[in-house]
């Protein structure tokens, strides 16, 4: 009886909050820097709305991992037709929720390092994680992950929380792939250099550009923003000797979106020039699909990682919790 009453209540409240699902509306959950004024969101929205004559609504959640948590919480009743902003480290866990359906689109135009074969998630951009530093504050930046870990603790770096943020998780996996079982010791040394751990990428990068710390974890492509938008080469990314960890960002259709024909249409649009041409100079990542415009020459001045590091989605899914607990244990000391 109680349970019945509860579910009635829940249904009632769900109806009061959710508008009736109009066919000509597409709801996309993504991370907050995607929807920022300077991010790709506004342009993508305009471009796709012109093509589909529909209404696109972006809902911003702090960062990639938080995005997955949000979806898990909402379950099948989620409003999201599409979740955009997970990365390969999360795809297995995302599939395990049973909340994603096959994309069902032609992925021939998709190109990412190492190739792509996944029938649920579709990549939209990629870049290597990198430490970005302020060349006016740091004369001798670390040349390797080992130098970063062992370096002067007074020269600080801002990192992201692996529990909420995909760059944070990327850093965790990067250290794991280089240090293996010795990762906790590496973190124990590195934590003295960490100014603070932010919940998402935008907070960390904001602190860095405000001058609170001379280093931040971001992407090899981040300096392109400063070259193009600010005409300065002050901020530089570092290719480390051990290699850089790769992030491929993906989008997928939810069980809610399976009922909305616009969802598949959007994913197809996402792999084409209409979307891909916007990505480099708004999301500051490399396009993972067909483009019409050549890349801005600034991207040619970026460091090329000597080696690409990447765990398989299965490995990450099997170990993520244990590795995060390991990280927590060290960082809470």
């Amino acid at each position: 009886m109680r349970k019945k009453l509860l579910s009635l209540l829940v249904i009632a409240s769900a109806f009061s909050v959710l508008p009736a699902h109009a066919q000509d509306k597409l709801t996309i959950y993504t991370y907050d820097s995607f929807t920022a004024e300077w991010g790709p969101g506004p342009q993508v929205e305009k471009a796709f709305e012109a093509e589909c004559a529909c209404d696109v609504e972006f809902v911003a959640v702090a960062d990639g991992v938080a995005l997955l948590n949000r979806l898990k919480l909402e379950g099948e009743s989620t409003r999201a037709d599409i979740v955009l902003g997970l990365d390969t480290n999360l795809t297995n866990e995302a599939k395990a929720t049973g909340l994603f359906v096959r994309a069902g689109i032609d992925q021939a135009s998709v190109k990412v390092p190492g190739g792509w074969s996944d029938d649920v998630f579709v990549p939209y951009d990629y870049a290597h994680f990198a430490v970005v530093y302020d060349s006016e504050k740091l004369a001798n930046p670390p040349k390797s992950l080992h130098e970063l870990v062992d370096g002067d603790p007074n020269e600080k770096i801002v990192l992201q929380d692996p529990r909420t943020s995909t760059p944070g998780l990327g850093m965790l996996l990067w250290i794991k792939s280089v240090y293996g079982a010795n990762a906790p010791e590496a973190w124990a040394k590195l934590r003295n250099r960490v100014l603070t751990v932010t919940p998402g990428w935008s907070e960390a990068y904001g602190l860095f550009t405000k001058g609170e710390a001379p280093m931040v974890l971001s992407y090899t492509t981040s300096p392109a923003y400063h070259m193009v938008a600010e005409d300065t080469e002050r901020y530089k990314a570092l290719a480390f000797e051990e290699g850089n960890y790769l992030q491929i960002e993906v989008a997928g259709i939810t069980t809610t979106g399976a009922k909305n024909p616009l969802a598949a249409k959007f994913l197809a649009f996402m792999t084409g020039p209409g979307f891909q041409d916007i990505i480099p100079e708004t999301n500051w990542m490399l396009p993972a699909g067909a483009t019409d415009k050549p890349l801005n020459p600034a991207f040619g001045k970026l460091p090329e990682p000597t080696k690409t590091l990447l765990f398989s989605a299965d490995e990450v899914a099997a170990n993520r919790k244990a590795w995060i607990d390991e990280w927590l244990a060290v960082m809470s000391r």
Binding site: V65, N69, K72, V194, T196, V197, P199, I324, M331, R333
Partner: peptide, 22 residues
């Protein structure tokens, strides 16, 4: 608090639910 080093039980409850989903 600023990071896992300065976390109390109440904040950890919040993080377990909203961060880790555990």
């Amino acid at each position: 608090g600023g990071g896992p080093a300065a976390t109390t039980l109440e904040v950890a409850i919040y993080q377990a639910l909203r961060f880790d989903f555990d």
